[in-house]
Design a protein around this nucleic acid. Structure first.
Lengths: 193, 193
DNA sequence: AACGTAGACCAACAGGTGTTGACAGTCCAG
DNA sequence: CTGGACTGTCAACACCTGTTGGTCTACGTT
């Protein structure tokens, strides 16, 4: 009985600091990437001491893990009119990437760090492949088709949000849906070529 | 008149060392990526002193630039039967990526370093967009279509050669051509959706 | 009011980085 | 044979990194 602070998580005095660190970490990681975003810089932004970061998040990797914890969340996503699932998926990913700048960092880091790469893969493993299976494909086929879909959207994300090729950035949102929608649709529903 | 060594480049005694450095650098960059591939490690592999690297290549960035200098080389690439250009392009990129492991490193670095990103973009700017123009598209359209094609092949390269998603690695070469060929074909030749 | 504890700070460590300069061996032209 | 230029080596510099232990402060409970 510690009075107001039960053993279930109560409002600790340090919560504000924790949040400040996490916010600063997100910004720094997004702006500078993993390597160049130093703990010292993050601490400076959060106006605390670097050692606090270690105290609350263990180490740099732990901080990064919590900073980029994003829910891919193509949750229920009912199979829709089925002729529109391609366009629906593309729209979904587009908003996801535009709302979460951390995804670009996750991808930047994934290019170097296997752990981050695995986190990206989990989207394929736990979301896209099951989705392909729900569309009636056999395991092997589902795996191939899901890989093609992920490759499609990640390719766009790469050129548009990570490498920032002007030609890719210039594309309009609906323009992308119009071009990529049918592609994903074909990967998911067309018979094997 | 320096005798055998004219002012045009002659066989210097240090050429062997230069080559050894470059070879070791390629291996290390491919294996470890840019940051983790230290000059000391490269020098150790080449069995020379780290200072030689600086002497011959100026700095680490210069060494990297020469180590990953690859010719994208979709050179003449006649417009073919035109119904086959999609598949032809996909095949071309596939062999290019399988023969040059350095491309994966270039992409890893491009995710972080703007200079490397720009080098990748140059392929789009100087090769794909002109190709789209040769197919009869107006500048703006050519830019969009070329961006989609590059996004397609880079997406595959990302999941297959950089992130190494098992589902993407498992795809067979001709399987990829069969799926991605029509996609690229459509991006290049289909009317606007 | 006194105390124990958690929050925050400071200074330092140990390790690794790219890079530089001074020195020794080697080859070839004069 | 004697310069001087070219290769190569050694040791050190200056810097920055993540991380740690000790110390002060202030709160909340007893």
């Amino acid at each position: 009985m510690t009075g107001t602070t039960e053993d279930q998580q109560a409002a600790r005095r340090s919560d504000a600091t924790r949040a400040a660190i996490l916010a600063a970490a997100r910004e720094r990681f997004v702006a500078d990437g993993y390597e160049k975003a130093t703990i010292r810089a993050i601490a400076r932004d959060a106006k605390i001491d670097p050692s606090m970061v270690m105290r609350y998040y263990g180490n740099k990797a732990g901080l990064f893990a919590e900073a980029v914890a994003i829910d891919p969340g193509l949750p229920g996503l009912s199979l829709e009119p089925r002729e529109e699932i391609g366009r629906t998926l593309v729209r979904h990913f587009l908003t996801l990437w535009e709302e979460n700048g951390e995804l670009a960092v996750l991808m930047r880091v994934g290019a170097t760090d296997p752990a981050a790469a695995d986190r990206m893969q989990s989207v394929l493993r736990e979301q896209m492949i099951p989705l392909a299976r729900r569309l009636g494909h056999e395991p092997e086929q589902a795996q191939a088709r899901a890989a093609l879909c992920v490759s499609t959207v990640l390719g766009l994300a790469l050129t548009r949000y990570v490498l920032r090729f002007p030609a890719s950035v210039a594309l309009g949102r609906e323009e992308i849906v119009d071009w990529l929608g049918p592609t994903v649709q074909r990967y998911l529903t067309a018979p094997e070529p």
